[in-house]
């Protein structure tokens, strides 16, 4: 993906993020995620039924990288099974952390494949994956 396309996708997801705004609905599981060395702070809530992710919402204050990554993760995960979601999150984290990953699984998340070049922004990109990871863990432990 060329730099211009990446920038367009990131900017579009930053300026018009998917599913911004939380609901008061107990069928969702909510987690806050923030990093003390950075000022991004977001809440994410996820609803799963019969092993499939039905909906994910988020809210908070965060930079362009964090907000767009949250939006793209939400786009990618809705409709996926919990196992698929876990795989995507794992591979996404591997990509950000410069480890081996499966490109085929990541779709638009590949826009962050060179974020490691700005080390201080890696945590911005990882923040939503941390929240989703912890929500998936709650679901796994419930079942």
């Amino acid at each position: 993906m060329d730099k211009e396309t990446k920038r367009e996708i990131i900017l579009d997801n930053y300026q018009n993020p998917m599913n911004k705004g939380l609901k008061d609905d107990k069928s969702y599981i909510l987690k806050n995620t923030n990093n003390e060395s950075c000022i991004d702070n977001i809440d994410m809530m996820l609803k799963a039924e019969n092993g499939v992710i039905k909906d994910i919402l988020f809210d908070g204050e965060a930079c362009a990288i964090c907000t767009s990554a949250t939006s793209i993760i939400i786009r990618n995960l809705i409709g996926k099974t919990l196992e698929e979601a876990e795989k995507i999150i794992k591979n996404y984290q591997n990509m950000i952390n410069e480890k081996e990953y499966d490109k085929e699984l990541l779709g638009e998340l590949l826009v962050y494949d060179d974020i490691y070049m700005q080390p201080n922004r890696k945590k911005c990109a990882l923040l939503p994956s941390d929240a989703v990871e912890r929500i998936l863990e709650v679901i796994r432990n419930e079942n």
Binding site: I39, T67, C124
Partner: peptide, 21 residues
């Protein structure tokens, strides 16, 4: 523009400021 994005931007000019609360 979120303050941290401004701060990252200014770093490209070698300007150190602080973003946050």
């Amino acid at each position: 523009v979120f303050s941290q994005d401004t701060s990252v931007y200014l770093n490209h000019y070698n300007i150190a400021i602080r973003a946050g609360n």
